[in-house]
């Protein structure tokens, strides 16, 4: 049996908004550690890994490990019915064919429950190896979202290059080219506005902007994003979910023949 209660229900609403366009159906894994998900997009180019740790919930009970297959579009429809200030409770059973979402208004004067049908999903878990990254860039999530959006109006791919000069985002398309360089900047009023570049060695990789733009849907979850790059490895774009865990997107680089 799974029973979890999340006082900050808006977090779950934001999580769904940040994965539903990338992944149609996914298994949520319930364990004593927390509520998690690993899923690939339909073309198997990107992978999303979500963890909401049990300690982040006001109440968390999971008697045994099990998975619940959900259509994320349908789950998003249900969660959109929760108010931003609502407390969300999720209840499910191992082997059950439905999951219940309960929404309580902060003043407890409105209580709603929605029951959603579960589905059987054949999903494969991938082993994500521990990697030493050549470069790790931490920057404001809104800035990264802006860069991806701007570049995608010019080209389809972005080359992300990290050198000692900074991190460069480049694209080219039919109408021309664009280069945006962000330098390390730690002299800011708030730590979340800083751009921090840790570079072991220079790295340059090419990615499809369509996926990057999709990842930036997670920006409302965190003021900062961390981009980890290594030659010939998938990039990791990570948004921390305060007090609870993370959402990590992995994207395979494009490779020259």
């Amino acid at each position: 049996m799974l029973e979890l209660r999340l006082v900050q229900g808006s977090l779950l609403k934001k999580v769904l908004e940040s994965i539903k366009d990338l992944v149609n159906d996914a298994n949520f894994d319930c364990s004593a550690t927390g509520f998690s998900l690993q899923a690939m997009d339909s073309s198997h180019v990107a992978l999303v890994s979500l963890l909401l740790r049990s300690e982040g919930f006001e109440h968390y009970r999971c008697d045994k490990n099990f998975s619940m297959g959900m259509n994320l579009g349908n789950m998003s429809k249900m969660l959109k019915c929760a108010g931003n200030d609502d407390i969300i409770t999720i209840k499910g059973d191992d082997g059950g064919d439905t999951i219940t979402f309960m929404f309580e208004s902060p003043s407890q004067d409105k209580i709603a429950d929605f029951e959603m049908k579960l589905m059987d999903i054949d999903s494969e878990h991938l082993g994500i190896p521990e990697a030493e990254y050549h470069a790790i860039v931490r920057m404001p999530s809104a800035e990264f979202a802006r860069i991806c959006k701007d570049l995608s109006s010019i080209g389809d791919t972005v080359i992300i290059s990290v050198t000692k000069e900074g991190v460069k985002f480049s694209t080219k398309g039919d109408i021309g080219t664009a280069n945006i360089v962000c330098r390390q900047n730690t002299t800011v009023d708030k730590p979340e506005e800083a751009t921090i570049i840790e570079m072991q060695e220079p790295v340059s990789l090419t990615f499809a902007l369509r996926y990057m733009n999709s990842f930036t849907k997670a920006s409302p979850l965190s003021n900062t994003v961390t981009i980890s790059l290594s030659s010939e490895l998938p990039v990791v774009v990570e948004y921390k979910i305060a007090e609870m865990g993370y959402i990590r997107y992995y994207l395979a680089p494009k490779i020259e023949d």
Partner: peptide, 14 residues
């Protein structure tokens, strides 16, 4: 040309 490999090329199925 430039190719888009799948993520399974990098991460093995468990």
């Amino acid at each position: 040309g430039i190719n888009q490999p799948t993520i399974t090329k990098f991460f093995a199925k468990l």
